[in-house]
């Protein structure tokens, strides 16, 4: 057999094999793969940097179920990711976005590769003049400049990292240094990070509560939910925190999902912990009002108004609400 025939046989064989193997790979039934691939690229919002596919948390489970459902309905990856980020924010993406500052992250490796190839090509085309004694002084100037640039950039990195270290000292990811009154100045993301990094810390419930309240005020009930829930379930929460979290949960359950009964059940649990709590009873009256159970609402609110310990502010709020109920106004 001539070399040419052999080449043809091998070449043909290789092309045919690549085609067959490629076809088999491309037609691999991928439904299950898509679910796990998506699950692996989304971070569980309540755990520390774990993908939802690996996380045992309730919330991660729900998110996985959603993905499975959507894949079943034929949604594209992007649609599913958009739906999830709409509810839980961009922070859940394990992949940094290919836009904004993280674009650098995606471009840098490509630039490095191109620069590397360019350097090799340039290096092969430009043989330097070996042993040219006059090259040395010019070389010296160049090296001095190089050294200056190096020192400058090193100094810049040092300054940046040192300032980062100091930053860390102040806002420290440790909970101990985060005073409750400081919380206003801390961004939601930072709080999330602090919480994620200190899940077992005894003071974490206060922080979760603050964050959840903030989400609730922003109308982001979906983000608020897991934190309220965690405060209720946590062994380290005190009674006041648990009651506040139950009240928060009740409100978003009603306002977000319209489930009045569930909400009232949560408030009952809160009242078991702190019988007679004014905010809880007021909330009960308000949810009853808003869900159209005006009679019950009237009863709850007028009972509350009889309470001797009521502060002036609360008296005002409660009587305003009671007036609205009695007038059968639609709740605002």
């Amino acid at each position: 057999m001539s070399e040419r025939t052999r080449n043809l046989i091998y070449g043909g064989l290789i092309v045919a094999l690549i085609a067959v193997v490629g076809f088999l790979i491309a037609t691999n039934p991928t439904e299950a793969d898509r679910v796990s691939r998506l699950g692996a690229s989304i971070m569980c919002p309540v755990c520390q940097g774990e993908a939802i596919i690996h996380s045992p948390s309730e919330m991660a489970r729900e998110m996985m179920d959603l993905i499975e459902e959507r894949v079943g309905q034929g949604a594209t990856d992007q649609q599913i990711i958009d739906e999830l980020t709409a509810s839980y924010g961009q922070g859940i993406l394990l992949d940094p976005p290919v836009s904004g500052p993280t674009l650098i992250l995606w471009l840098a490796p490509a630039i490095a590769l191109v620069a590397g190839i360019g350097a090799i090509v340039w290096w092969r085309r430009h043989p330097s003049d070996p042993g040219d004694p006059t090259a040395a002084p010019a070389g010296r100037t160049r090296t001095a400049v190089t050294a200056l640039i190096l020192i400058g950039s090193a100094a810049a990195v040092l300054v940046a990292v040192t300032s980062f270290l100091q930053d860390r000292d102040e806002t420290a990811l440790g909970v101990a240094d985060l005073q409750v009154e400081d919380l206003d100045e801390v961004s939601n993301q930072t709080l999330e990070a602090v919480i994620a990094a200190n899940l077992d810390h005894p003071q974490i419930s206060g922080m979760r509560l603050a964050l959840a309240d903030r989400y609730r005020e922003e109308g982001d009930y979906r983000s608020a939910f897991p934190h309220y829930f965690a405060v209720v379930e946590s062994e380290t929460s005190d009674a006041g925190q648990r009651v506040a979290a139950l009240a928060g949960l009740a409100w978003i359950t009603w306002d977000g999902n319209g489930e009045a009964d569930t909400a009232l059940g949560l408030l009952d649990r809160a009242l078991e912990i702190q019988p007679g709590s004014v905010p809880v009873r007021f909330l009960e009256g308000r949810i009853l009002h808003c869900s159209g159970q005006s009679d019950r609402s009237e009863r709850v609110l007028s009972d509350l108004l009889q309470e001797p310990s009521l502060t002036v502010e609360w008296k005002q709020i409660v009587s305003d609400e009671l007036a609205a109920v009695e007038a059968r106004e639609v709740c605002a």
Partner: peptide
């Protein structure tokens, strides 16, 4: 280039946070 990818993926979040205060997660998938 591989080492550079690992380096930038490891250090970028720190540097970005130092400069802008934004936290990004660069994890397995990247």
């Amino acid at each position: 280039v591989f080492a550079f990818v690992v380096l930038i993926g490891t250090m970028f979040p720190i540097i970005l946070e130092a400069v802008t205060g934004t936290r990004v997660g660069v994890r397995g998938p990247f």
